[in-house]
Amino acid sequence: MEILVLILVGHFLPTLIALLRGHHNGFAIFLTNLLLGWTVIGWVVALIWSTTATQRRVEVISA
């Protein structure tokens, strides 16, 4: 049972990284990871994508 949990966490590591970083493309990274993560290339693409820069929202306060 513990092995299965470790495999799932390892498989969805790019998604977890994206969610923890608040990535603006988190859902797209999840879909890439879900649908193509079983291939090594798809998993690596999702991992790299999840570690790229995130957009910062800037709040403009007008005086």
Results as ranks from 00 to 15, higher is better:
residue 1 M to N: 11
residue 1 M to P: 13
residue 1 M to I: 03
residue 2 E to D: 15
residue 2 E to F: 15
residue 2 E to A: 11
residue 5 V to M: 08
residue 5 V to I: 14
residue 5 V to Q: 09
residue 5 V to F: 13
residue 7 I to G: 04
residue 7 I to D: 07
residue 9 V to K: 11
residue 9 V to W: 04
residue 9 V to M: 13
residue 10 G to D: 01
residue 10 G to K: 04
residue 10 G to R: 02
residue 11 H to A: 08
residue 11 H to T: 05
residue 11 H to K: 13
residue 11 H to Y: 09
residue 12 F to W: 10
residue 12 F to Y: 15
residue 12 F to G: 08
residue 12 F to A: 13
residue 12 F to M: 11
residue 13 L to E: 02
residue 13 L to N: 03
residue 13 L to V: 05
residue 14 P to I: 01
residue 14 P to L: 02
residue 14 P to H: 00
residue 15 T to F: 06
residue 17 I to S: 10
residue 18 A to E: 09
residue 18 A to H: 08
residue 18 A to G: 05
residue 18 A to P: 04
residue 19 L to K: 08
residue 19 L to N: 03
residue 19 L to A: 06
residue 20 L to E: 05
residue 20 L to V: 05
residue 21 R to D: 02
residue 21 R to L: 03
residue 22 G to A: 11
residue 23 H to T: 00
residue 23 H to S: 01
residue 24 H to R: 07
residue 24 H to I: 06
residue 24 H to C: 05
residue 24 H to D: 11
residue 24 H to G: 02
residue 24 H to S: 11
residue 24 H to V: 07
residue 24 H to K: 08
residue 25 N to R: 15
residue 26 G to V: 05
residue 27 F to I: 13
residue 27 F to Q: 07
residue 27 F to V: 15
residue 27 F to E: 07
residue 27 F to D: 04
residue 28 A to V: 15
residue 29 I to C: 03
residue 30 F to Y: 11
residue 30 F to M: 01
residue 30 F to L: 14
residue 30 F to E: 02
residue 30 F to C: 04
residue 31 L to W: 07
residue 31 L to D: 06
residue 32 T to E: 15
residue 33 N to F: 00
residue 33 N to W: 00
residue 33 N to S: 10
residue 34 L to R: 04
residue 34 L to S: 07
residue 34 L to E: 00
residue 35 L to E: 02
residue 35 L to K: 07
residue 35 L to S: 01
residue 35 L to D: 01
residue 35 L to R: 10
residue 36 L to Q: 06
residue 37 G to W: 02
residue 37 G to C: 10
residue 37 G to E: 06
residue 38 W to G: 00
residue 38 W to P: 01
residue 38 W to S: 05
residue 38 W to D: 01
residue 38 W to H: 03
residue 39 T to G: 09
residue 39 T to L: 14
residue 39 T to M: 09
residue 39 T to K: 06
residue 40 V to Y: 06
residue 40 V to T: 15
residue 41 I to G: 06
residue 42 G to I: 00
residue 42 G to R: 00
residue 42 G to S: 08
residue 42 G to P: 00
residue 43 W to A: 05
residue 43 W to M: 11
residue 43 W to I: 07
residue 44 V to R: 07
residue 45 V to P: 06
residue 45 V to M: 12
residue 46 A to K: 00
residue 47 L to K: 03
residue 47 L to G: 09
residue 47 L to M: 13
residue 48 I to N: 04
residue 48 I to P: 02
residue 48 I to R: 13
residue 48 I to D: 14
residue 50 S to R: 04
residue 50 S to M: 08
residue 50 S to K: 03
residue 51 T to P: 00
residue 51 T to G: 01
residue 51 T to E: 04
residue 51 T to D: 02
residue 51 T to M: 11
residue 52 T to N: 05
residue 52 T to L: 08
residue 52 T to M: 07
residue 53 A to S: 11
residue 53 A to C: 04
residue 53 A to W: 03
residue 54 T to Q: 10
residue 54 T to E: 13
residue 56 R to Q: 09
residue 56 R to E: 07
residue 57 R to T: 14
residue 57 R to C: 03
residue 57 R to S: 14
residue 57 R to Q: 13
residue 57 R to N: 10
residue 58 V to K: 08
residue 58 V to P: 03
residue 58 V to S: 06
residue 58 V to G: 01
residue 59 E to G: 13
residue 60 V to A: 12
residue 61 I to D: 11
residue 61 I to H: 12
residue 61 I to G: 09
residue 61 I to C: 03
residue 62 S to P: 12
residue 62 S to I: 12
residue 62 S to G: 12
residue 62 S to N: 14
residue 63 A to W: 13
residue 63 A to I: 08
residue 63 A to V: 10
